[in-house]
């Protein structure tokens, strides 16, 4: 018997949250996008992690390639080589990508990026246009590559027998040692002993301000990494930003506007940039509206300064 708790979900609310797309295309909105515009969008919004050709950078997923590797050692699982349904790609790009900026893509942009990823897997031609109308015509190469969990038939009978307790085998030899790979992370306590933290000579700014800046930096983390081991992501690494020439971080794909700006990241420039990124440097890639409070900006700059 219902308790009468909760309230009716309004159609607008359901429309806002119910965006999933089923394998048969149910749930797709009207729209279309072509490979060429998809390529441009991909360079701008996806390539920082997935590479210009969807080949994947560092540990970020490759989206293309890997054909005929599934029965090899270390198979390369990409959209082309592994994903069984195109709906999954459209749904995931539209719902959860770009990483750190989910749900900014319009349906047309999503169709275009999906088309480009299909193209990068040699599944469509360069003049292909994907839309809600031809969506279900695309067959993914590995669509037939899945079976429903068969452990109840293939494993459970084999692994259900009274186990041996005495003299179960004649001899035992060690065949492999984890120490050979040597991939276990070092215990932080051990590291402290061998690698004492060096004290910097120069006094750092107010630790409270830095701590406040670190908290505020949470917003930036969606796109930027900072600190030890930081890598370029949607945005460039921000270690040692103060005093650095803009647009010069190795391996990061900057907008032409940033490369050609000729500015140095002085406190003054950072203040102006953080307050209004698009206004300060039109055409740059940072899609962040800016920090309103000047106190917050000072805290973020203090934090950046403390990350040499």
């Amino acid at each position: 018997e219902p308790l009468g708790l909760g309230r009716e979900a309004l159609p607008e609310e359901i429309a806002a949250w119910d965006v999933d797309v089923m394998p048969d295309g149910t749930g797709l909105p009207e729209g279309s996008g072509d490979v060429a515009s998809g390529e441009g969008l991909f360079q701008e919004k996806c390539a920082a992690c997935h590479g210009d050709f969807a080949e994947g950078l560092d540990n970020w997923p490759a989206l293309a390639g890997g054909e005929d590797t599934l029965d090899h050692k270390d198979p390369v699982k990409t959209v082309g080589s592994y994903w069984p349904h195109l709906s999954t790609l459209w749904d995931y790009v539209h719902r959860s990508m770009p990483f750190g900026q989910a749900q900014i893509l319009t349906p047309d942009e999503t169709y275009a990026i999906t088309a480009y990823i299909l193209y990068s897997n040699y599944l469509v031609d360069e003049d292909f246009v994907l839309s809600d109308r031809n969506f279900s015509e695309i067959e993914m190469p590995n669509a037939g590559g899945f079976i429903v969990d068969d452990r109840p038939e293939t494993e459970y009978p084999v692994f259900t027998a009274e186990p041996c307790m005495r003299d179960c085998k004649e001899s035992v030899e060690i065949t492999m040692h984890a120490s050979v790979f040597d991939v276990t992370p070092t215990d932080p306590a051990d590291k402290d002993k061998t690698d004492p933290v060096s004290k910097t000579e120069e006094p750092l700014p107010d630790p409270e301000l830095i701590a406040a800046g670190e908290k505020l930096f949470a917003k930036c983390k969606a796109c930027h990494m900072i600190g030890e081991g930081a890598k370029n992501r949607v945005g460039p690494v921000l270690n040692g930003t103060l005093g650095r020439e803009a647009g010069t971080r190795d391996g990061y794909k900057y907008s032409p506007a940033m490369i050609e700006s000729g500015i140095t990241w002085t406190e003054e420039n950072l203040r102006a940039f953080l307050a209004d990124p698009k206004g300060f440097l039109p055409g740059n890639k940072m899609s962040f509206p800016g920090v309103k409070s000047s106190g917050d900006i000072e805290a973020i700059i203090a934090y950046l300064r403390a990350q040499p």
């Binding site: 089923m22 599934l70 029965d71 999954t88 969990d149």
Partner: peptide, 26 residues
Amino acid sequence: GPVESREETSKYTDTLDNGISRKWTW
């Protein structure tokens, strides 16, 4: 029916030696 989302197709499926993958191995 199942949505066959990213987490239940491209991930959390188990590829066997012959290249065929088990799905719904919950």
